[in-house]
Design a protein around this nucleic acid. Structure first.
Lengths: 221, 221
DNA sequence: CGCCTTCCGCACGGATCGCTCAGGATGGCG
DNA sequence: CGCCATCCTGAGCGATCCGTGCGGAAGGCG
């Protein structure tokens, strides 16, 4: 990697001291070159357009336009630079919002300098880098025990249905009427009714909406 | 960390060669001690009970009981050991299922030996460790633009509803009948019908199931 | 084969849903 | 005040849904 052209880096932080620190940090690495700095999100967007960096180190809490919004704006273009969020706050909302906005990294400011540089290189080569606590947050978020067991329970209840019944249940879950289902599955309307009726009784439900909700909990799409 | 008692490690893989390789790898690290080995998921569960390791390196594809099921079983107990999944396959399903099952690590088998050891130590000290490609997968999953915008779109459609209409919509989304809604909100049955009817027309839908699905997309629970 | 079980299919009736039309209450505006 | 707009409320009626009952096809078993 060091034999290639240097990585073009932009630094975005409202605190001049932080920017200076990062600049000095990068100064020791000939394979990384600081091509732009910005003090808020608005400047960041224009700087990204003007200097086409490979990577942007982005703070979140900044005046005018914050880093999350700036990230989304920058990443919405084709061939946009990669964004690594670098902040003191690892609140769940921030992490998810940043990653959804297109960030490829999320580092806390207590990250050792060496690892910040490593993250820049790693993201430049296509990977993603997150601080350990951020990874933990992300895992907890997808692991969401509630959602997991709800799906499992729903699947269990749907387990001993006939193949035909399951097909009908899924179409009910899509919001189709009995007539539509009849057409879709090639059977008569009263037959569909029969299946729906059996579904209600087997699953101990009161109406088709509850069938639909159960199907969605089971994630049969 | 090296001054403490050694990390108790269990190795679970159906391939004796892989187990041997890992054993030799760990052999060079005095701070890690292999206390158990297992060749399938069932053995893994009993071994975890018998030897209470701190960390388990777990393969996924194994005869009888696979690593995902074994992970879930082991992690369902109090004070269970941490599990690091170590596999060649990084399919989305595997990653999510493993993390939901309680795994604290997910490494691909092409991970350099040094980093496997680092991951063991890191997880032992409470952090989580994922291979870069796995992190990428995880990010893509939470970033899922579809889910994010679906919620946003659903909210937008529900935005210009009356307060009363929204209340009715939510109860429809819970699977309640019109009569139940009437009781719940203290109005007459025909009134509820009127609201539902207006909901269908305003939202351009065909039946109450679709209202329910929209409410759930908007996450109004 | 005869018997049983399970599933699919269908028809009828009562219950529920969904549409249309309309009255009444509130608030803004000239 | 008169007028309009918006919202909540309600009644009548046709369409759809849901429950019950029944017949037929397919498979297991003595």
């Amino acid at each position: 990697m060091t034999g290639e052209r240097p990585i073009r880096l932009a630094i975005v932080d409202d605190d001049p001291l932080v920017r200076a620190g990062l600049r000095i940090l990068v100064g020791g690495s000939p394979d990384i070159e600081v091509v732009a700095e910005a003090g808020d999100g608005a400047e960041a967007v224009t700087a990204a357009d003007a200097h086409w960096p490979d990577i942007i180190l982005m703070d979140i809490r900044m005046p005018r336009v914050d880093g999350l919004v700036a990230t989304r704006r920058i990443r919405s273009r084709e061939g946009a630079p990669q964004v690594i969020v670098l902040t003191t706050f690892d609140a769940d909302e921030y992490v998810l919002e940043a990653l959804r906005g297109g960030a490829s990294g999320f580092l806390l400011k207590d990250t050792p300098p060496r690892e910040i540089l490593a993250a820049v290189r790693s993201v430049a080569s296509g990977a993603a880098t997150l601080s350990p606590t951020v990874i933990r947050r992300l895992i907890d978020h997808v692991a969401d025990p509630e959602a997991g067991t709800r799906r499992a329970r729903a699947r269990a209840r749907l387990a001993d249905l006939t193949e035909r019944e399951r097909e009908v249940a899924i179409l009910v879950g899509q919001g189709h009427s009995n007539a539509e289902i009849a057409g879709e599955l090639g059977m008569s309307l009263p037959t569909v009714k029969g299946h729906v009726s059996r579904l209600l009784s087997k699953l101990d439900l009161n109406n088709r909406v509850q069938i639909a909700l159960l199907v969605h909990d089971a994630e049969l799409l």
